[in-house]
Design a protein around this nucleic acid. Structure first.
Length: 879
DNA sequence: GAGGTCACG
DNA sequence: ACGTACGTGACCTCT
């Protein structure tokens, strides 16, 4: 059916701009109005299914109406630059959709819309007008309806004659009369002073039009009203005229030119990509025709007498991609759905059952000479191992390469990388398998096509990524550090960590008992039972019921965080109990129950070390996170008692770097004082206290040391007086004075901090010792907040990131060393500045000596690296 | 799914 | 004047 949609471009853009936060894409362009507009456009196209579309815009600041009335729209603020600069983006979007847009000097969008609405009406074509402007209601007829934006961006209310009648008791053509009487402050149309919507409606119900009202002035109720109308007759006529949409705009196109036959996702996708409309891109992506991939499948369940032999020549290739599809992200638990290989020209899907029985494939897979291109080599090799398939020689990990090229990039899914690096489309897993409850298992050709496509993508990506790594001098970091680290981590994860389940359960019972007591005490003190875990309910109890002073608020209500509660503790005994409750509750839910959930039948826990997550180069650990097992408080530290060696008569050995970040800072800054502290192996916080407070070592008090320590942390984090004052609970002024004195004492550090920020502003990124990069797009931002954050990041990242480089290097060397020395000891965990091993008791001395050598010698700095080793029967005792 | 809170380095 | 310390992950509640 024929249908014309007319969109009021400026009105919708305006609406979107104020409905959404001021978003920018990574190049700093504002995109919120364009984004909201596009959402609205897509919704309208989908729901109205128009056969013709036009988007009308206002042109320039003056129109023919200004000739009649100089002050027209005179009270309106200038359109903010952040909005007007988005109008060209919106027009780009429209061009990509193949939707016509139009603007004409001296006319407003309303007039263009009015002219076309009339045209549609006369030709019997149904018209829908989309706007946020009530004025356009005057255009409604039997054929013309109007969608008026309501809350947010895409929520709209439909008006036809009936709806206008219901709401105002008026015909559409009387809307101009309404404006004529009551005026419109947003357009600076005066109307009759003292006449608002109520009076105007009452008058129109009786006299129909402005003219009708003016003809019956003596009949109007009230003396005041009579006077006002009498006095402002001309103004009312002018106001009506100004509000009347002009429907005779000269147009140089016809309805035929507005034909819309749907959009081509291939045209739209690049524009969405440039604007970084990720969700919208995903939405259209499923409609993008996929590049044809010729897929061959080996469908036979057995090898003998089947088609596998046709494929064996593949294994003569120098390099193949290997893609393994899993049923879930956690490869320690997930099953393998299938395997796919590609050499770029041929691609093949191998069902798991076939793969397991196929000699030639297994030989290739385990061949240490046959290089594989993979996505997530670690997950791939572990998933295969779990199904009895040994794999070796992962030469190129697409995931790690993408991560090194830009760690801050939002997505490192294969489909994201294909999109970024190949300007291509790979349907992501959610669109192929479905999301959430709709997720389905694919089979046969469909699965084969999807996996083969991914294997192909790996081959296509490798040269592109390899070139990019080289051009940023990331190739050494990639091939000599990150790829080897992946192999080390794979072994650590695969082996897992043994947990004493019985002890964990006993600890859990004990903690639960404690928690029950605390719950009872707290409810008694509050005088009523409530959910202590709910910050909302807790806030009501503390602040409303018990009347404690509100020191800090959050976006949604009262703050009940520990730093606030600690300040409130002296005022009411319930506070201390709550703090303890929180502590114990955390231990039970996260550590006791959390760890029990992750235990396997063999009594082990297999975490996943994420190697492509952090912006600084650190690892992270998930399912469970074994990098945040409690240590600071004794009650929590006992959790470490359950981490035990996996073999009898073995022990846990922990080796940690002492002050690695400050040593890295000494090296990077070449500050004489700081280097001196480490060369003489002093307690660095004491040394800082001596320098900052100007006292002898023997006169450093524990408070002075504590403050000096906080300043040292602050320096590493990219210091601000505010942050330090919060941490130390002192005034900002005092904090600023500390910082000043620190910089006076360590001028080299000050110089380094200034230089690194300058460098970041100039280059747009900072680097670590091993050349790892982090881009800082906000470093030159006009927003104080974003810029400050970027500046602190510029100071922190080289420090945190270089420390990450160093321990990764040590891990690779250590794995090598264990092998060379013929030791059975095993690396289990890495916790940023420490390595945890399990070792046969009789290897402890050899291991300890070796690990100190390796870790201290991982890289050469201007100051020594120092490692402390501890041994115990459990992780708890290895301290 | 977001926000608040808290565990670690 | 502006308002946060840097980097993570997990659990809970509530919409």
């Amino acid at each position: 059916m024929d249908k014309l949609v007319l969109i009021d471009g400026n009105s919708i853009a305006f609406r979107a701009f104020y409905a959404l936060p001021l978003l920018t894409n990574s190049s700093g362009t504002y995109t919120n109005a364009a984004y909201g507009f596009t959402m609205m456009l897509m919704k309208v196209l989908e729901e109205e299914k128009p056969s013709r579309v036009l988007v009308a815009f206002d042109a320039g600041r003056t129109t023919f109406r200004h000739d009649q009335y100089k002050a027209y729209k005179g009270t309106r603020d200038k359109t903010p630059g952040e909005l007007s600069e988005q109008l060209p983006l919106i027009k780009e979007v429209l061009d990509a959709f193949g939707v016509r847009h139009f603007e004409l000097e001296q006319y407003e969008a309303d007039d263009i819309i009015g002219t076309l609405a009339k045209l549609g009406d006369r030709n019997g074509i149904p018209v829908t007008i989309v706007t946020g402007d009530k004025d356009l209601l005057q255009l409604v007829t039997d054929y013309v309806t109007l969608l008026m934006t309501r809350k947010g961006v895409t929520d709209a209310e439909r008006f036809d004659r009936q709806a206008i009648g219901d709401k105002y008791g008026l015909r559409p053509d009387q809307i101009v009369d309404l404006k004529g009487l009551m005026g419109d402050s947003s357009d600076n149309i005066p109307g009759i002073p003292g006449v608002g919507e109520k009076t105007a409606l009452k008058l129109l119900h009786q006299f129909e039009t402005v003219e009708g009202v003016l003809d019956h002035i003596p009949d109007l109720p009230g003396k005041k009203l009579k006077e006002r109308v009498e006095e402002h007759q001309e103004q009312a006529r002018l106001s009506k005229e100004l509000a009347t949409i002009y429907c005779e705009v000269p147009l140089d196109f016809s309805l035929e030119d507005l034909i819309y036959e749907g959009y081509d996702p291939v045209q739209v996708a690049p524009v969405f990509k440039q604007l970084e409309f990720k969700t919208l891109l995903e939405r259209i992506q499923k409609d993008v025709p996929q590049e044809k991939v010729e897929v061959k499948t080996i469908s036979s369940p057995t090898v003998t007498g089947d088609n596998t032999s046709e494929w064996e020549s593949l294994f003569e290739e120098e390099e193949l991609s290997l893609f393994v599809e899993k049923t879930a992200p956690n490869y320690h638990r997930a099953d393998v759905l299938g395997v796919a290989l590609s050499d770029g020209k041929r691609q093949v899907y191998i069902p798991l059952a076939v793969a397991r029985d196929w000699r030639a494939f297994k030989d290739w897979l385990a061949d240490p000479e046959k290089k594989k291109i993979a996505y997530d080599a670690k997950g791939t090799s572990i998933a295969l191992s779990r199904h009895g398939l040994d794999s070796a020689c992962y030469g190129f990990d697409v995931l790690l390469a993408s991560y090194l090229i830009n760690a801050s990039e939002s997505g490192h899914e294969l489909s994201d990388i294909v999109e970024r690096k190949l300007d291509g489309f790979l349907p992501d897993d959610d669109s192929v398998y479905g999301k959430g409850a709709k997720r389905k298992q694919l089979e046969g050709e469909e699965l084969a096509a999807h996996l083969a496509r991914k294997a192909n993508a790996l081959v296509a990506l490798k040269p592109v990524l390899a070139d990019e790594l080289e051009s940023y001098q990331l190739d050494a970091l990639f091939y000599e550090l990150e790829m080897p680290v992946t192999r080390v981590l794979a072994e650590m994860e695969w082996h897992g960590v043994k947990v004493d389940e019985e002890r964990l359960r006993a600890l859990g019972d004990e903690l639960q008992e404690r928690l029950d007591e605390l719950t009872e005490t707290i409810h008694d003190l509050a005088g009523t039972p409530f959910n202590i875990n709910s910050p909302k309910q807790l806030g009501e109890i503390l602040y409303d019921k018990l009347g404690l002073p509100v020191l800090k608020k959050t976006k949604t209500g009262y703050s009940t965080s520990a730093d606030v509660l600690e300040k409130l503790a002296p005022q009411h005994e319930i506070v201390e109990q709550i703090l303890h409750y929180r502590q114990v509750g955390k231990l039970i839910s996260t550590y006791v129950e959390g760890l029990l959930k992750e235990m396997t039948e063999t009594g082990k826990i297999h975490t996943r070390f994420q190697q492509a997550i952090t912006a600084t180069g650190r690892l992270s650990s998930t399912d469970p996170n074994l990098q945040n097992i409690p240590v600071r408080l004794e009650e929590g530290r006992r959790i470490r008692q359950v981490f035990v060696p996996s073999e009898a008569d073995w022990v846990i050995v922990s080796a940690d770097y002492s002050q690695i970040e400050l040593r890295v800072l000494a090296h990077l800054s070449q500050d004489e004082g700081l280097m001196e502290a480490f060369r003489t192996d002093m307690d660095v916080h004491t040394k800082t206290a001596m320098d900052v407070f100007g006292v002898k070592e023997s006169d450093v008090t524990s408070l002075m040391r504590r403050h000096a320590k906080a300043v040292n942390f602050g320096i590493v984090y990219g210091i601000s007086d505010y942050g330090l004052s919060q941490n130390l609970n002192i005034s900002r002024k005092e904090a600023a004075a500390f910082i000043q004195r620190y910089f006076d004492s360590y001028p080299g550090v000050k110089r380094y901090m200034d230089e690194i920020v300058q460098q970041a502003k100039k280059e747009g990124y900072v680097s670590t010792m091993l050349n790892r990069r982090r881009y800082l797009p906000d470093i030159n931002s006009r927003h104080f907040n974003r810029r400050s954050f970027a500046e602190r990041t510029a100071m922190n990242t080289p420090i945190q990131g270089s420390a990450a480089d160093i321990i990764k290097q040590a891990m690779v060397h250590m794995q090598q060393a264990l092998k060379e020395d013929g030791l059975d000891s095993r690396l289990l965990l890495q916790v940023h500045d420490e390595l945890i091993f399990e070792a046969p008791r009789d290897e402890v001395d050899a291991l300890s000596a070796r690990v100190v050598d390796v870790m201290e010698g991982a890289v050469e700095l201007s100051v020594p690296l120092k490692v402390d080793v501890n041994v115990g029967k459990t992780w708890y005792e290895a301290k």
